[in-house]
């Protein structure tokens, strides 16, 4: 993913309920990927990490995946 996924797909608000999208930015252990790997802009990367953390709190995504 070299280009910013969110601006390429015209996503203005990153929602914590969009688990399918958020899962693309987690590695096998459930960690959030580095922005160098995701290619997401700094602003969107911040919003993305907040969305993932909110989803984790509500049990939609794992904190640690084995």
């Amino acid at each position: 993913m070299k280009q910013d996924y969110f601006s390429a797909n015209n996503i203005k608000h990153i929602d914590y309920k969009d688990i399918e999208i958020l899962r693309k930015f987690l590695n096998l252990n459930g960690k959030i990927m580095n922005h160098k790997r995701t290619g997401v802009t700094a602003k969107n990367q911040r919003a993305l990490s907040n969305a993932i953390k909110n989803a984790r709190f509500l049990g939609l995504l794992p904190f640690v995946a084995k």
């Binding site: 797909n9 608000h13 929602d15 999208i21 909110n54 509500l58």
Partner: peptide
């Protein structure tokens, strides 16, 4: 069990459906 209150916008923010088309 738990709840989360967030500030958000009026518009629909869920984009998952658009992706299936793409």
């Amino acid at each position: 069990i738990r709840f989360l209150i967030l500030k958000t916008v009026k518009e629909n923010t869920i984009a998952a459906k658009r992706f299936i088309h793409k």
